[in-house]
Write a protein that binds this DNA or RNA. Structure first.
Length: 776
DNA sequence: GCGCTTTGATTTTTT
DNA sequence: ATCAAAGCGC
């Protein structure tokens, strides 16, 4: 019978998780323990046995890709989910896309207009810069990045502007509070939200409007939250609110794979869940179906070093497998070559290229790997890095559409008003913005209201906007306004891809791309791809005559804003021969036959920014653990003796390597290969010479000590007051002649030593220190 | 206003 | 080393 399929091949704990009927459920699922499978089977169980309506089950995953996978697996278990009447009724979404949907439905509930924009990093940054300008705050003293990150933490802790303002303690906080307010105002006039707002606004909506809350509470009978260890308090609160009525909330997670605390994820959510739902059933899935015994043993030994942790041991019935290969290369280039050599061997072991991944801590590490692949003609696919939708030409075109969809979108307007160049320079834009700000209206309003030759602007019948512009500028602006008018008008009938065609044509963008000798062709391809994806989107979403083109446009833009690169990763097929290059973070949830982790050095993994703080090091360890447990059959962990030759960055082998028991490791294979090949090459000689200087951590401190006389490129001569190691660098405090006292980071400061201090000479006294580099 | 050159800052991970 | 913003000449 069909229903028996649901339990077939499931282990007892898996069955328990699937069968659980009502009430809260916590599933602690180790890597490779069949988590997705359990979730899919659970959905099937709810639909088949408990007769839940599919559209009353809300499943929330971390990425769109995970959402798609889960949906597909559910559909293959419960085919009626895909029959024509109930198509796509199973809501599987990310938190962000769920919230976008809620807001899209009733924008006015959250103080938004229909067609509101979702600002990405770039737009946020731009908005922040403008806000600082308006408030006349020096961006050097208050860097946009760091303010944005403060605001982001606030939002994710459910702290709005008012509350933030009421809790300021320092002068700096007060400035940030003002900026926060200004930034929010800018978003509001632009009818835009940032990523965090999607969540925050929905939370505020649900907690303030009882009727809306009840609507969602009644609608969603069952809630499933994937990757629970990486949810943040705000997300959890949204889920909790919605689940309050039925209390059927099932969360799946693994505290050992919590790697997003920097994005405000809080693994304490797991204990919070237990506190909130003391009656919760807890199921632990600790059998690993993915990795070999040795890989698992190695990973388990590494993670066992974390102190803040629930003891948990994975086990497997898989074969013992090959030991984990550990090797040290001379530099990042050799590291890459070693991998490619080894990949050649894996070919013979029947491990497909598409089942091989190279994983690293930071995106910049992909470069050496890419170069090496190109040299040897090894195809690869790079996940992340420069994202498709972030590419200049793609984003330009998107911004035309965004402005059509939301005429208040100032960030979009600023981006494209002079693209391609049409004679609207900084001065003109500044003037338009001044007028817009004075009247509290979006930029496009001012832009559109310019009438012909005067220096006066008229609104649609209302009071005129006064602008001080020369005729030439007014004409240029009017031309742009005309273009936008046309596009907005046409958007009532045209589909997104047709609108894009029109925009490309009429804006002159197409011509400028054709004239671009350097990147024109590439740009053209990207634009074609974007047009193609718009077309595909229209087809997928059943764009028919009854479908409002504007609605389709909104949805397309929302989709564009919320997809990540991992999401689009599996357009496989023709890419089956390519190896995958991916960051450790992005690799979460994926698996490969063979995994090469690179950059296993102190300073990279664990990263230097994390190295001083125990709990941050533990997160780095979890990151390492995530990487290791992606491997099914083979795991390689490589490091380089020296990286980025110019910076002379020499990391010790990562501490995590030492945490792997010797019994699970082989150090022979790769090493021998390198020695044999390189012994007489210049690099090997250089290496020998470099050894004495290798312990770089100790180097800066040794170089500068109190009393030393130094010279700085800008500040001139001075005397060192103190020096200390700081985050892999050294912070040197220097009293400069006539320039005050400055703190300098040695890696950045153009500082040289003139005279070394006498032994025992007391350092000079200082009263006041002017920070040169604000350390966040 | 535009485009080229110079300077100055910048390196973690991303929905 | 690389990229963005500011500066400068046309």
């Amino acid at each position: 019978m069909l229903t028996d399929d649901i339990f077939e091949g499931l282990s007892p704990p898996q069955q328990e998780a699937v069968k659980h009927s009502d009430g809260p459920l916590l599933i602690v699922a180790g890597p490779g323990s069949g988590k997705t499978r359990v979730m899919a089977h659970r959905v099937a169980y709810l639909v088949r046995h408990l007769h839940a309506k599919p559209w009353r089950i809300l499943a929330v995953t971390f990425t769109n890709k995970a959402a798609r996978e889960l949906r597909e697996r559910c559909e293959s278990l419960v085919p009626e989910l895909i029959d024509s009447f109930t198509a796509q009724v199973l809501p599987v979404r990310t938190f962000h896309s769920f919230c976008a949907l809620v807001l899209r439905r009733k924008p006015e509930h959250a103080g938004l207009e229909p067609g509101f924009s979702i600002y990405d990093d770039d737009d946020q940054h731009r908005t922040m810069r403008r806000t600082l300008e308006d408030l006349e705050i020096d961006p050097k003293r208050f860097p946009p990045r760091s303010i944005l990150s403060t605001i982001s933490s606030a939002k994710n802790s459910m702290i709005g502007v008012e509350q933030f303002a009421s809790t300021v303690e320092t002068y700096g906080d007060e400035v940030v509070a003002r900026v926060y307010e200004g930034y929010e105002r800018a978003l509001h006039t632009a009818n835009a939200v940032d990523f965090d707002d999607l969540l925050l606004k929905v939370f505020q909506l649900l907690s303030s409007q009882q009727d809306v809350l009840e609507e969602y509470q009644n609608r969603y009978e069952y809630l499933l939250l994937d990757e629970f260890q990486d949810t943040n308090p705000l997300q959890f609160q949204i889920a909790r609110l919605i689940a309050e009525r039925h209390r059927n909330i099932c969360v799946v997670g693994d505290p050992d794979q919590s790697i997003y605390s920097w994005r405000h994820a809080d693994p304490a959510n797991i204990s919070e869940f237990q506190r909130l739902y003391p009656d919760a059933t807890i199921v632990t899935l600790d059998q690993c179906y993915r990795s070999t015994q040795l890989i698992l043993e190695a990973a388990d030994s590494v993670i066992a070093n974390n102190s803040e942790r629930l003891e948990k041991h994975l086990w497997t019935e898989n074969i013992r497998g090959e030991p984990v290969a550990i090797a040290e290369a001379y530099d990042e280039n050799e590291e890459a070559r070693l991998i490619l050599d080894e990949i050649g061997k894996l070919d013979e072991e029947d491990i497909k290229r598409g089942e091989i991944a190279v994983m690293y801590r930071i995106n910049a590490q992909s470069r050496a790997m890419e170069t090496a692949c190109n040299q040897r003609g090894v195809p690869y696919r790079l996940v992340g890095g420069l994202k498709f939708y972030q590419r200049k030409e793609v984003k330009d075109l998107i911004c035309f559409l965004r402005l059509v969809n939301n005429p208040a979108d100032d960030a979009a307007l600023e981006r494209i008003i002079n693209v391609p160049p049409r004679g609207i320079g900084q001065r003109t834009v500044d003037e338009l913005r001044r007028a817009a700000r004075e009247n509290g209206v979006p930029l496009l309003d001012v832009t559109m209201s310019l009438q012909g030759n005067g220096n006066e602007a008229l609104t649609n019948g209302a009071a005129p906007y006064r602008v001080q512009l020369k005729t030439r500028a007014i004409n240029a602006v009017s031309e742009f306004a005309g273009l936008m008018r046309l596009l907005i008008q046409q958007s009532m009938t045209l589909q997104p891809q047709q609108l894009m065609d029109l925009a490309l044509e009429r804006s002159g963008y197409l011509d400028s791309v054709k004239e671009d000798m350097e990147r024109g062709e590439e740009k053209m391809e990207n634009l074609q791809e974007l047009l193609g994806s718009a077309e595909q989107f229209a087809i997928d979403n059943g764009a028919g005559p009854e479908y409002e083109p504007r609605e389709l446009l909104s949805e397309f833009l929302e989709n564009v804003a919320l997809v990540s690169d991992v999401d689009t990763m599996d357009r496989d097929g023709d890419l089956g021969d390519a190896i995958t290059l991916i960051t450790l973070h992005q690799a979460k949830g994926l698996e490969f036959d063979a995994v090469f982790m690179i950059g296993l050095e102190e300073g990279l993994l664990p990263h230097s920014r994390s190295i001083e703080d125990l709990s941050q090091v533990e997160e780095e360890r979890r990151l390492c653990y995530v990487g290791m447990t992606r491997a099914r059959k083979r795991l390689y962990m490589l490091g380089a003796f020296q990286r980025n030759a110019r910076r002379n960055f020499a990391g010790e082998p990562s501490r995590f390597l030492q945490e792997i028991p010797e019994s699970a490791v082989t150090r022979q294979r790769i090493r021998g290969m390198r020695r044999g090949q390189r012994i007489n090459e210049p690099a090997a000689i250089k290496r020998a010479a470099a050894v004495p200087a290798a312990h770089s951590a100790a180097r800066p401190r040794a170089q500068y000590s109190p009393g030393d006389q130094v010279k700085h490129a800008h500040f001139g001569k001075g005397v060192v007051i103190s020096s200390r190691d700081f985050r892999g660098d050294a912070e040197v405090t220097v009293a400069f002649d006539g320039q005050g006292v400055k703190r300098l980071m040695l890696n950045f400061a153009p500082l040289s030593k003139l005279v070394t201090a006498e032994e025992g000479e007391p350092p000079p006294r200082v009263e006041k220190i002017d920070p040169v580099l604000d350390i966040p």
